[in-house]
Design a protein around this nucleic acid. Sequence first.
DNA 1: TTTTAGCACTTAACTTAATGGAGTGCTAAC
DNA 2: GTTAGCACTCCATTAAGTTAAGTGCTAAAA
Lengths: 347, 347
Amino acid sequence: MITLTERQSLILKAIVRDYTEGGSPVGSKSLVQELPMKVSSATIRNEMARLEDLGLIVKTHLSSGRIPSIKGYRYYVDHILTPEKVDNRDLKVIQHSLGGEFHKIDEIVAQSADILSQLTSYTTFTLRPELKDSRLSGFRLVPLGNHQVMAILVTNNGDVENQTFTIPNDLSGDELEPVVRFIDDQLIGLPLQDVLAKLQQEIPLKLAQYLQDPDGFLAIFGSVLSKAASERFYVGGKLNLFNYTSLQDPKEMRSLYSLLDQTDNLANVIGTPGQHIQVRIGNEITNDLLKDYSLITATYDVDQHGQGIIALLGPTAMPYSRMIGLMGAFQRELARKLLDYYRYFDE
Amino acid sequence: MITLTERQSLILKAIVRDYTEGGSPVGSKSLVQELPMKVSSATIRNEMARLEDLGLIVKTHLSSGRIPSIKGYRYYVDHILTPEKVDNRDLKVIQHSLGGEFHKIDEIVAQSADILSQLTSYTTFTLRPELKDSRLSGFRLVPLGNHQVMAILVTNNGDVENQTFTIPNDLSGDELEPVVRFIDDQLIGLPLQDVLAKLQQEIPLKLAQYLQDPDGFLAIFGSVLSKAASERFYVGGKLNLFNYTSLQDPKEMRSLYSLLDQTDNLANVIGTPGQHIQVRIGNEITNDLLKDYSLITATYDVDQHGQGIIALLGPTAMPYSRMIGLMGAFQRELARKLLDYYRYFDE
DNA sequence: TTTTAGCACTTAACTTAATGGAGTGCTAAC
DNA sequence: GTTAGCACTCCATTAAGTTAAGTGCTAAAA
């Protein structure tokens, strides 16, 4: 367990700040100017040597200034940093952007990723509140004529999923009636996960009583259901990658960029953060492509509707205190907006 | 009007090929090796000087080999190139990828952009057959409970557009019945463009007879309608940009990349190509960001259903003959698949 | 014991010079 | 019209020199 003196702590803090702002290694002389105590550059150098022994800062070459190591950022984030109070203008932006009228949870969550990336100039990920206790509250098949039918699935949270299918013969409402009644009787009110489970087992058997060839219907129902039950991250500010990456090689850029498109993969990378805001720095992230970046993750809590996730990807040298402050504000605002939204469907 | 001798033509062709394959300026000595006639490098040099006088090739510096100029590519494409017969394997890929079952025209068109970008390693754009004579064939409002209603619009081409709205009070089917009947009577069968026009004028007045406050309904109908009536490009192989761009500066990369996201802007860039395959090279493209790239565009013709567009963006040094061959094959295959698809709705 | 001034040393980044290779244009002969 | 020969040009690479920033260490001062 590392403990730093007050002075060492101030020096580390200044190095982190300077390097984040200026982007180049920080030397003892420039530190003298900024530090609130009056000591010579030689004293600073001595302290820096100690910080280096502790592994908190490193040189880029034998006679260069110092930059924070992963361990140094870690210490800074854990022991030195204080979250910055979120700027009033930023808060206005958040509230205004979330203030509009939304017709879907996913719209709110997707928009959140965009706002956050705009405020930070980094790349952001958002996940809607978990669906684990989302329940089926309605299923429709709407014949559209022309060999088409639309399947619509509604949940108790107000989520609507739909998909259009092309079918061999036009259906009339009458033919569908018993099937829909079966769904109503047997499945409505059940968690989507349970419905998915039943779809593998008992539903096909029972359905055989109502339909000659249930396969077509099962495919349709299954497809919409799994769409509704699948969670996926929204990504905001993909283009911002160009701002903060230091990569030159287009090939590496490409792999990194394409990682952001693999929304399923992102679940592994981001993991399941705890209640508080979590920061992972450099190689603490489990993905090799991201070993030179930092990832800030947090859940947000929408009461009985479960938790969602917001995350932020940026360079290891990022203004952590501002970012953590922003994430905190965003947690609250997003939770509030969603509670607001859910209120409709809980009445 | 430039006319080249047989030999000059062969030399230009060889320069274009070598530069496209090797990426570096082509000198007289290496040309001697490849050309089918036996002449010395000095002779080639004399011919090259003439080609340069004509502005077809340029030097990168005073004593360098030559690379084709925009004008040189232009001449090559217009007078020398012969479209390459499409590779059998490529044709298989196209046919297989389009062979599956699709539920929407947009799925086919979007998938097309992906296939083409995969085959070419470049970036592709596709536009569905124009909607100008797409007609309204159905409109539904499906109450979903929970303050939600889904609006569904169907066209005679089998296009389905839908959107979910949150409304203050739950609607029952009965309340909607007169409105839906009004739509049926007055609007079904009309081209979407005409419906859009009427929405600005007579519809609001007439609707006042059926609804106390028609604004809500008008907003919903208008929103779905304009979604259905809007055309937009699908973009494939955005990531491929990383392969063929020579840009180093992340900022420029970013602007270029974000251009690909502005699907409305793309319409201006791509324009309305003629029947045949059109090649625009370098600054012939009207967008400054693309002045170092080439754009191949073509329409495809789906009989009475109008024309769509496919386009291909790549480096100016691209294997034009192969690409033009591919585009030709793709034109045919896509048109065929869509005719197949439309057949359902024409019956 | 801590702090500091002074100084030798290291390295990146930049500038300048030197060299080799690929290619050209031109001339004069074929 | 074609070609061999040659002087010339320019890029790319390597080598050498210079500067600026910063360090570690030592010995004296506080």
